[in-house]
Design a protein around this nucleic acid. Structure first.
Length: 853
RNA sequence: GCCCGCUUGGCGGAAUUGGUAGACGCAAGGGACUUAAAAUCCCUCGGCCUUUAGGCUGUGCCGGUUCGAGUCCGGCAGCGGGCACCA
């Protein structure tokens, strides 16, 4: 028999699907909708196995829900702005746009070879002026709605490259490209008010039942809501105070110092005539970027000489320090330190010989016996040495202090979030230009909407350090839209996370003249199943949730949670190899010698296998999807990435694994296409009654249908694969002449249809070989016959004293007494009982019998 | 440091609400076919003992609940992930 030739076959069906526009989603339909989406790729140049896995998972769902009668939207686009394009421009001199569009073209071709059921008519690229022009309009909407503002904030500044660095570009305190020590600088930046929605984003998490618990928890921690007291310490001898925030107002009587951040305005004022303090503040600022690890451990402070008065005790004065561990961005930028009940404060107090007064004592310890030495006590207990709080629990004491502070007017109950507003300004070329003009007389003026899209200039140069938009000869020079006088454009561009915060909405109406077609958005959203890597658990997913709320606020959509179901898939890993020189070796170059040792196929040098790690270019443990598809075809690659490992866990790519998948591909081909001679015409009804063998086969088939269906719905794709192996084994093990031909056809057709979401090309080919004239991609999903799912008999285990001794076959739902009788009649069971008294017999219907002796 | 998750054969992994542990795949070993190889097919495959039959033991470790625990509870260890001077 001929072998299956994937290359020709796959191309043939891809063309047919394309010609039939079978994956095109309609914005109006009588069918229920289902929106499948995988996180869109950055066009880095070539797809990798992680992409293949990600998009195959989504593709299985797409084809499955299509077959189940849904109107399915499964689009693809490109997260096309970002730094790699600029890096390529600097290194190779290619224009970012050319580099990006070339990469998109290459990756589109590759993705098409995977045979994905994608509606390519909706393809978008975020670097397309049509897309980012609409994004600019949304930015202006947000501005009008008061969700955008501008303020100064600190950035990592590379003084050689004249550019702002992202945190990951700062390596050991130095710029990744220039190697120059990074400075902290204050720049005016645009912010989106995500904190406005902090409570709502937190509350919304509870309703996201189809999200992984882990991701919800990570977002919850990221938002970091806390409740506490905000109050002002009066500075002794001055007519001003220091506002502090605390979540432990109950420990107020244990306070022994007040600490303010290095960036606190008071610190700045005190530093004007204090060189030592100036030096200390400078040291704190360096800390953030440079010697983090070194300094992290040590709590340092600078005694300002000021003191503040304790709110409950006029006689008590607390010293005021500038401390390196207090953050200006959180709370009020100032705290009171209670060393006995906070480890950080304790370390600080020990260093500067400050009072350590325990005020919370564990329940079972006498107050007099309790002291704190090197470890702060943070557990529950009752209050002591605390005046009117003595004897109260921590919770009671918190409430009492806050109530009193509010009654006396010097403090307020306050909710604080760790979450900060989203800084979206980037000092780069390859991003969405921020549609703002800076005018000396009018201030910041929005670019009029009729001038959108505000496009990037094409004639730019990366010869000079810094932002090309900034030193472009004329781009930034314009006139003020308001007063018409000469003015300057904003030269910052938007964070690329903005681009990815609404692309899933644009997919619903990619050609709309408005940023969002509300009808289309409301029809398709929310995304029913969103799939991507867990590395986007916080930022991308939180920004998209915020963005959707902001769009709702501005009247663009009528929902606030964009993703109903979220699935985070695992990474694709591979064994690493090194040669004698310690150089990483590509797996495709590794060969096995006869004695089992590994060698390089090109040089013959010995190779040593290392750990299994995430596929990465730097370690060269990558397998190129193109090579795999060339050699085995897309179906085999798809099958392999779906088999064995549950999709949420890491997958280890192995050469033997892909070989196994390839063998199964061939086996299916032989099993189905080899049956042609013995088949009845398509659609032949199964005449009752059928033989025992035929009935048994039908039962297996229908159980497989039910099982695979449930597995795909539950995203247990590896289990679905295992069931399909079982079904193929069962069909292959049949004595074909003994099987009713219509039953055999049903078995083969079911197998082909169940396999089709995973191996769509092969399934299509086999469907045709079974005599069908229409595309399988448009066919219905098989229905399990409930009557075939129940057996007449069940096999039950029989335990004696909890140990399995025998299994018995009894009628399904047989009466308890009958089951007991059969169980007790078993030789093996009698031997195990061995004359002991039977105290009790537990019978769990259709499951197990346990005889207690 | 805090929070979360995981731990089942040589390997990846199955196992409804607690109910026959190891489905399915990979690897390994043996056999058939073949001049030979590839491909394919058949058999074995957690460990220990045993002639068959069978017995004992076994889901990271210790303990508990239960007629019955991979599954539930308490403690411990190891691995992985997230966050981190967040007051």
């Amino acid at each position: 028999m001929s072998r299956y030739n994937p290359r020709a076959t796959e191309m043939k069906w891809q063309r047919q699907w394309d010609e039939a526009s079978i994956f095109r989603a309609e914005n109006t339909s009588t069918k229920p909708k289902y929106y499948v989406l995988e996180m869109f790729p950055y066009p880095s140049g070539r797809i990798h196995m992680g992409h293949v896995r990600n998009y195959t998972i989504g593709d299985v769902l797409t084809r499955f829900y299509m077959a189940r009668g849904f109107n399915v939207l499964h689009p693809m686009g490109w997260d096309a702005f970002g730094m790699p394009a600029e890096n390529a421009a600097m290194e190779k001199g290619t224009h970012p746009a050319d580099w990006t569009y070339d990469n998109i073209a290459a990756m589109r071709t590759q993705l098409k070879q995977v045979g994905l059921a994608i509606d390519w008519s909706r393809e978008i690229a975020t670097c397309d002026p049509d897309y980012y022009g609409h994004e600019q309009a949304l930015f202006l909407d947000f501005l009008e709605a008061g969700l955008v503002y501008r303020r100064e904030s600190w950035v990592n500044w590379d003084p050689v490259d004249n550019t702002v660095l992202a945190n990951e570009q700062v390596i050991d305190g130095c710029g990744w490209r220039s190697g120059a020590p990074v400075e902290r600088r204050k720049l005016s930046q645009w912010f989106l008010k995500i904190t406005e929605f902090a409570d709502d984003l937190l509350d919304g998490l509870k309703l996201l039942e189809r999200w992984p618990e882990k991701v919800r928890l990570m977002q919850e921690n990221w938002i970091g809501r806390s409740e506490g007291l905000r109050f002002t310490f009066l500075i002794t001898g001055r007519d001003e105070g220091i506002e502090v925030y605390t979540t432990r107002p109950d420990t107020i009587f244990g306070a022994s110092f007040c600490a303010i951040a290095a960036d606190h305005p008071l610190a700045a004022r005190l530093a004007t005539d204090n060189a030592e303090l100036t030096a200390f503040i400078a040291e704190c600022r360096r800390m953030g970027t440079s010697q983090e690890a070194l300094e992290k451990a040590e709590k340092k402070g600078f005694n300002t000489g000021l003191t503040v008065r304790h709110p409950f005790d006029d006689t008590l004065e607390l010293p005021v320090y500038v401390a390196n561990f207090v953050l200006m961005d959180y709370g009020t930028g100032a705290v009171f330190g209670c060393p006995a009940h906070d480890q950080r404060d304790l370390d600080f107090a020990r260093k500067y010989n400050l009072r350590v007064q325990p005020v919370v004592v564990p329940q079972d310890v006498p107050v007099a016996d309790f002291s704190v030495e090197e470890e702060a006590y943070v557990g529950p207990g009752r209050l002591a040495h605390s005046d009117f709080l003595d004897g109260l629990s921590v919770e009671e004491a918190k409430t009492r202090v806050i109530d009193r502070a509010e009654a006396e007017g010097w403090g307020k109950r306050s909710v604080t979030f760790r979450l900060r507003d989203w800084g979206v300004s980037r000092q780069r070329y390859w991003g969405t230009p921020i549609p703002i003009v800076h005018c000396e007389s009018c201030g910041t003026v929005p670019v009029p909407r009729e001038h959108l899209p505000l496009t990037l200039p094409e004639d730019i140069s990366f010869d000079k350090p810094g932002n090309p938009l900034d030193h472009h000869p004329d781009w930034k020079h314009t006139s003020c839209p308001s007063c018409k006088k000469p003015a300057l454009r904003e030269t910052d561009t938007l964070d690329t996370f903005v681009d990815s915060s609404w692309y899933f909405i644009r997919f619903t109406a990619p050609d709309s003249s408005q940023p969002i077609d509300m009808d289309a958005a409301n029809y398709w959203l929310p995304v029913d199943q969103y799939t991507g890597g867990v590395e986007h658990a916080i930022l991308h997913l939180l920004y998209a949730r915020f963005f959707t709320r902001a769009l709702q606020h501005c009247g663009h959509v009528s929902l606030k949670e964009p993703f109903d179901g979220l699935f985070t898939q695992g990474m694709v890993n591979h064994m690493t190899y090194r040669d004698e020189d310690g150089k990483w070796v590509f797996p495709s170059l590794v060969r096995e010698r006869d004695n089992g040792a590994l060698m390089r196929s090109d040089t013959g040098a010995a190779v040593e296998a290392g750990r299994v790690e995430k596929m990465s270019k730097s370690k060269r443990n990558v397998v190129d999807p193109d090579d795999i598809i060339d050699q085995y075809g897309a179906d085999t690659a798809r099958w392999f990435v779906l088999s064995d490992s549950p999709p949420e866990r890491d997958l280890v790519w192995t050469e033997t694994g892909i070989e196994g998948a390839w063998r199964f591909t061939q086996r299916l081909w032989r099993l189905v296409s080899g049956a042609q001679g013995s088949l009845v015409a398509p659609g032949t009804a199964i005449a009752d009654p059928v033989s025992e063998d035929s009935l048994a086969l039908r039962r297996v088939v229908h159980k497989a249908i039910a099982g695979v269906t449930a597995d795909i719905e539950g995203l247990h794709l590896n289990r679905a694969v295992a069931r399909l192996y079982e079904l193929a084994n069962a069909i292959g093990g049949c004595d074909v002449p003994q099987i009713n031909p219509a039953v055999y056809r049903e078995a083969l057709e079911s197998l082909v249809r169940l396999v089709s979401p995973m191996m769509p090309h092969l399934a299509e080919e086999l469907w045709q070989s079974l005599g069908h004239k229409t595309l399988l991609a448009g066919a219905d999903w098989p229905q399990a016959d409930a009557a075939m799912l129940v057996d007449d008999t069940v096999t039950m285990g029989v335990q004696v004293g909890g140990k399995l001794r025998d299994t018995i076959v009894v009628a399904k739902d047989a009466p308890r007494e009958d089951v007991e009788a059969v169980a007790l009649a078993s030789d093996k069971v009698m031997r195990a009982i061995d004359g002991k008294t039977v105290r009790k017999v537990v019978v769990v219907p259709n499951r197990i019998v346990n005889i207690v002796v």
